[in-house]
Design a protein around this nucleic acid. Structure first.
Lengths: 245, 245
DNA sequence: CAGTGGTCTAGACCACGTT
DNA sequence: ACGTGGTCTAGACCACTGT
């Protein structure tokens, strides 16, 4: 039912926004299904097909998942590891191993220029810096430095994060902010000395650095994160792959 | 029109397969639109909505692109750089710079174990190894080692690749094989000495290694590729990002 | 203007999981 | 048996592109 001549956005996009707001507000837990397509359609006065398009888009974005015969569910509170499935440790074509998280610290710092720009806050604004260590079968695998504006998350500390089991879980539980990963980018680097100490690894060794921007459901930047990954297995030198004829 | 009681696959998936075969056979160039949804629907005896679902899936897979008012087109012959958009060189949030490709060599080698398994050929089978160098504003940025089964692409040599402008372009032009990227995975490594020489870079420096499996449109593995990326700008040490309060 | 893809609707039946 | 999502159809109108 499109009765508004002023609209610029298609109906299904409006449905998506309205759903994202309600999902962000925690209206449905991850074990409780959303209303059925037909119910949503009637609530929102559109057809079931339009609701379906909106829902499928959110599934593609990783916000929801659906199961035939059961219903549509909010995807599990985002794991701090995120969707870095492309990054091991592990084999190409191998199944990913589960990673264990360990909270190292939650401290106050001031925003540098790059972080401030990414988070759309002023330079020098107070930030929380959360340090996490990732282990795979007790082997250290990665180190995260996550930066969040202090203003938006006043009172956050290590205890809360430990209790909730992660930064994103804390944001959701304590502040009602459900997040989704906005963008990630990767580069190779030498492991700086300070980070090497925390990883218990050799400084200067090659590491995969993942930069991540995380947003709230309504699109506001919430966290800037840098991850140092020890990707283990070294690259093939061309000789090891094959022999010349 | 679903008149086959034995089918296991949904109709739109069958449409996708049939389209992939025709796309792989080069039935449409990248400037010539596919038949309209209605024409395809009538050709294939299904409804326009079913065709639309198949086409949209192929758009999502990067095989096609669509333009309102113009038509549906086969996505440009895959570029050898692939979809490694997450990997610079460049800034986080910066627009990607174009990369220039330089063919170093096309030689014959024998398949090692890992490559043989990935390409589903026997160990020791003859392979082509194609070496490409990538430059960004004349600065060397990456080195590719691409491995392809010799049997499937007999007669391929450096001249063909240079003429066509890339490995994938050659496969399409000379062998009628249109490819799509199957999977990619990344890790950090030290640049081996031999590759360092070809990149004109310092050995042992950290590089981002991208592994890629490429398939033909009908799903057969066609190429295994390893890329060494000099991702330039080094990671932020935590001190450079911000100052403690 | 005609033709394309994009959106939206309405209704039907199927496949699956729960009750 | 029932309700869910998954597929498929048919028809309408809109927005954009090229002529």
């Amino acid at each position: 039912m499109n009765t508004n001549p002023l609209r610029r956005q298609p109906l299904y996009a409006q449905i998506k926004s309205r759903l994202l707001l309600r999902i962000g507000a925690g209206e449905w837990s991850s074990t409780e299904p959303l209303p059925s397509e037909w119910e949503l359609a009637s609530e929102m006065a559109v057809s079931q097909g339009t609701v379906r398009k909106a829902l499928n888009d959110l599934v593609a974005a990783g916000v929801l998942f659906r199961q035939q015969g059961r219903g549509t569910f909010v995807a599990d509170p985002v794991d701090d590891w995120g969707r870095a499935a492309l990054v091991f440790p592990g084999d190409f074509e191998g199944k990913p191993e589960p990673l264990a998280q360990e909270l190292l610290s939650c401290s106050r710092v001031h925003a540098g220029e790059d972080v401030a720009r990414a988070l759309q806050i002023r330079r020098g604004a107070p930030l929380f810096r959360v340090r996490l260590l990732w282990r795979q079968r007790s082997q250290v695998a990665a180190l995260d430095d996550a930066y969040l504006p202090e203003e938006a998350f006043e009172g956050m500390d290590a205890r809360w994060i430990r209790q909730s089991g992660g930064v994103y879980a804390t944001l959701q539980r304590r502040f009602g902010v459900r997040v989704r990963i906005g963008s990630e980018q990767m580069q190779a680097a030498s492991l700086p000395r300070e980070e090497a100490g925390m990883l218990g690894a050799m400084a200067e060794q090659p590491v995969l650095v993942v930069l991540r921007l995380t947003h709230s459901m309504d699109g506001m930047p919430v966290e800037w994160r840098q991850r140092f990954c020890l990707t283990g297995k070294s690259a093939y030198s061309c000789g090891a792959l094959c022999a010349a004829v």
